[in-house]
Design a protein around this nucleic acid. Structure first.
Length: 801
RNA sequence: GCCGGUGUGGCGGAAUGGCAGACGCGACAGACUCAAAAUCUGUUGUCAGCGAUGGCGUAUCGGUUCAAGUCCGAUCACCGGCACCA
């Protein structure tokens, strides 16, 4: 029979839909599996071939788990707030909610056409007021615990989006989304104190099963370092504090640097004799955009402050103070002690400004470059530290500093607080009002959701205000505290807000009393397996861990960590090996592939493409192979013969394949699972016609990969019920071994023959069988045998001289 | 610069330290066809040989081992992240 994929796929998609085949069961006594993929942003372009790579992989796992008897939650939804929708709406004069609705419709059609086993009854949408009610509710809880605060500060401002960006959204000094220049702007912003969770976010990583590169990237982003904070006196009487991780090198400090934004500069305005020069440098530093600052990072600049000197506390020596933009006001204390002999940046600076160096750790050659190695060196020129190694010296110096009362131990982080305000329309309104008398006041929880009002124009403004600011009858309100006049906050939340907790909502998506019921959360949490893109590692993945840990601390969720396991898929590149993009003209549209090859072929192809974790180029030629394979499998049904067990000659291979497919799916090695199924098919073809028992197992194993076709074959062959209601095949470890094996025979490590031996052959027998081979005896005759070894089921190696 | 990763046929890629190149694509040859497509069969790392077979081969150089794609050391190239974080 012809493999009519179009009708088969349509037919089964309808049956699954009508019967709610993949609806999650509310039976909390069953073992559960919660598989999660990142819900998409429903863009106007529709689904990208990259989406199904992740969705298919977890769909395969979800389908297999169902067959293994698990109650599976595999949900889907829409992360629908965001700028592209808003920009499209502005351009075409359509309300963003309408744009969203249309895009969602299209995405949903596309996802359904791929046959994913999502539970559509649990579909969520972040722009739905009944959803963002709880996003706003979480914000209010953060506010109540002092973790949301408003602050006037210098922020990243995207000149094209006309909107503030979080640090995580600035990439190489430009906007992550649109690539436009990012400048600094002083604005009052809502901030979330993610830094308060820095330690917990780090420690939590030890408890979860995330792939290493995710853990490493999050650890680097959080950037914890242990060091010492200590005061330097100055000749003007004022003290200033510095942070160092290398307290051991204090005797080698030959100058200090404060950042251009350091408050002492203003304070010393009339005492610094070259103040004009200093001020000029300060202004130039402020003018630089992030991009320029990154570009100019290689060349050190700075100005020496004349008329003031710092005093090194450990030896009383007077050393100069510089300002330089290589010291950042936002990290540590905004001031450093500089040890040019043992720090690369200080070394470059000292070379340029001709500042002396003192070598205090032996082991390098400071004529050639700084010696920064902490492992081997021994302290010199350092009085009471002499002879100690670096670690001992750090401890001793720290103790000395503490004893003298001039400093303390200190841990610093690279992580900054999360800038949470956006000056745009299409986002969750921040549920706060400003009252002249009471200051910022949260709106009562009973008033949630605070619904986004309709506006005529959502054009961004150049003055940095949200479009909402123009709707005066919405902005003007009464203060919940004193009843007086108040103004609503007009900034909205960033796109990352709704996605920071969405996986909780899937547990109980229609609950209007709470985020989700306690029972649902207890049962489903944590997410057992979360797959998503590496690009979200320091954004969504980190943010959502932060919110979740907070929700745990206030007793809303039962686990500290939201996700037990995190994996990541590689990108699918264009045929030319470049990233797929419109401008490169190498975009593949999933709709075309489904039309021309079918959803099952597309799924299978994307899984067979290569190593799941690595990027791989699309190949229009290779996809034919997947189609050919499915056609071959489908035609097995034509010549089906009776039989209740595997034929003897195939029994071992069947057991082996069941084992391999079962294990490979769990390890995301879909490509080798498919290869094993292909090999088995080749063996089946070579041994005659398939029997019922064999076909049953075969299509069940293939079902998670090609669900429509296998379901159709199930019916066609008259098996009872639906394939998705059957059980996953089991294997017998004892039957996975062949009775005879081919082994290689090596002489001095070179292969000279291959022989068949019984799998359980003894050492001695294997070796004597090997020696009996003509090719082998020719090699060893007349030589002295030094060593003979048999590696069971692999090879014999005879070493001769 | 720092951190992480990768490097295997014409291509995508397989290989608990134990037969390198599974599986697939492509290519070549043959069958079917008036012909093409599709399908089926066979060959396909490379060099030498009619052949059995032999030499060489996993970025480069060196080491450990009976045995190295895999482990160790150095180098090169590419990809990703961070980027003056003291």
């Amino acid at each position: 029979m012809k493999y009519d994929y179009q009708n088969i796929e349509k037919k089964w998609q309808k049956i699954w839909d009508d019967n709610k085949t993949f609806a999650t069961k509310n039976d909390y006594s069953l073992p559960k599996f919660y598989g999660l993929v990142e819900f998409p942003y429903p863009s106007g372009q529709g689904l990208h071939v990259g989406h199904p790579r992740s969705y298919t992989a977890l769909d395969i796992i979800a389908r297999k788990k169902r067959l293994q008897g698990y109650n599976v939650l595999y949900p889907m939804g829409w992360d629908a707030f965001g700028l592209p929708t808003e920009n499209f709406a502005i351009k075409n004069h359509i309300h963003p909610s309408v744009v969203t609705e249309n895009n969602v419709k299209n995405f949903k059609r596309q996802l359904k056409s791929l046959g994913f086993s999502f539970d559509w009854d649990r579909e969520i949408n972040t722009t739905d007021p009944s959803y963002y009610k709880w996003t706003q509710w979480i914000f209010l809880q953060l506010y109540k615990k002092g973790l949301a605060y408003k602050k006037e500060m210098s922020v990243n401002w995207c000149t094209s989006c006309k909107c503030v960006l979080a640090n995580e959204e600035v990439v190489n000094g430009v906007c992550e989304r649109c690539g436009s220049e990012v400048v600094h702007k002083d604005k009052s912003q809502w901030m979330l104190k993610i830094t308060e969770y820095a330690d917990k976010l780090l420690e939590g990583l030890d408890e979860v099963d995330f792939i290493d590169r995710v853990k490493t990237q999050q650890r680097n982003w959080i950037g914890r370092s242990y060091g010492t904070e200590l005061y330097f006196d100055t000749t003007l009487g004022d003290k200033f504090q510095i942070f160092t991780t290398r307290a051991d090198t204090l005797f080698g400090a030959t100058y200090t640097v404060i950042s251009p934004e350091h408050p002492l500069i203003d304070k010393w305005a009339d005492k610094i004799t070259n103040y004009d020069e200093v001020l000029k440098y300060k202004q130039e530093a402020a003018k630089k955009s992030d991009f320029e600052r990154t570009e100019m990072a290689k060349d050190k600049t700075g100005v020496k402050l004349e008329g003031v000197m710092a005093i090194n506390p450990v030896n009383g020596k007077e050393i100069p103070i510089f300002i330089s933009d290589y010291v950042l006001i936002s990290y540590g204390t905004g001031a450093i002690m500089a040890v040019p002999a043992h720090d690369t940046r200080d070394y470059d600076f000292a070379k340029k400004f001709d500042i002396p160096m003192i070598e205090v750790v032996s082991g390098g050659n400071i004529e050639e470059g700084p010696y920064t190695d902490c492992d081997k060196g021994i302290l010199i020129n350092s009085d009471f530290l002499n002879g100690l190694n670096v670690d001992e010296a750090k401890v001793k110096m720290q103790e000395w500093v503490i004893e003298k009362g001039i400093g303390k131990r200190k841990t610093n982080f690279k992580l900054r607080d999360w800038v949470f305000s956006r000056q745009r329309y299409w986002g969750e309104p921040i549920p706060m009002v400003y009252c002249e008398k009471c200051g910022y006041v949260p709106i009562p929880e009973s008033e949630l959701p605070l619904v986004l009002p309709n506006v005529d124009s959502y054009e961004p403004t150049d003055n940095g205000e949200s479009p909402l600011a123009k709707i005066t009858d919405w902005v003007n309100t009464t203060c919940p505290e004193c009843g007086g006049h108040a103004l609503r906050e007009t900034d909205t939340m960033p796109q990352w807000a709704g996605s920071s907790w969405y996986f909780l909502r899937y547990c109980d998506p229609h609950n209007d009393k709470e985020i989700a019921s306690k029972e649902a959360l207890e049962y489903w949490c944590p997410v057992d397996w979360y797959n998503g893109g590496m690009e979200h590692t320091t954004l969504h993945l980190l943010y959502s861990r932060f919110w979740h840990q907070f929700l745990y601390d206030i007793g809303v969720v039962p686990n500290k960590e939201p996700y037990s396991k995190r994996t990541s898929h590689g990108m699918i590149l264009g045929e030319n090996g470049e990233k797929m993009s419109k401008s490169r003209g190498n975009v593949i549209n999933p709709d075309d592939i489904i039309r021309d090859y079918g959803a099952d072929t597309m799924r299978l192809y994307e899984m067979f493409l290569g190593d799941f974790e690595k990027a791989a180029p699309w190949s229009q030629a290779s996809i034919k192979g997947s189609k050919r394979y499915l056609e071959k499998v489908f035609s097995l049904a034509d010549n089906l013969i009776e039989g209740d067990e595997y034929r003897k000659e195939l029994e071992t291979e069947f057991h082996k394949t069941i084992k391999k497919v079962t294990e490979d799916i769990e390890n995301l090695k879909m490509n080798t699972a498919i290869a094993a199924l292909m090999s088995l098919l080749n063996s089946i073809s070579a041994t005659g016609n398939i029997n019922r028992a064999e076909l049953r197992t075969y299509i069940t194993l293939l079902n998670p990969f090609a669900p429509h076709m296998t379901e159709e074959m199930w019916t066609l062959c008259g098996f009872k019920g639906m394939l998705n209601e059957t059980e996953w095949p089991t294997f017998d470890e004892a039957k996975c071994v062949d009775s005879t094996v081919e082994i290689a025979v090596q002489v001095n490590g070179k292969i000279r023959a291959r022989i068949n031996v019984p799998a359980d052959v003894s050492n001695a027998d294997a070796i004597s069988l090997a020696k009996a081979e003509a090719n082998v005896s020719a090699e060893i005759d007349g030589k002295t045998i030094i060593k003979e070894l048999y590696v069971p089921k692999r090879l014999v190696n005879i070493v001769v001289k």
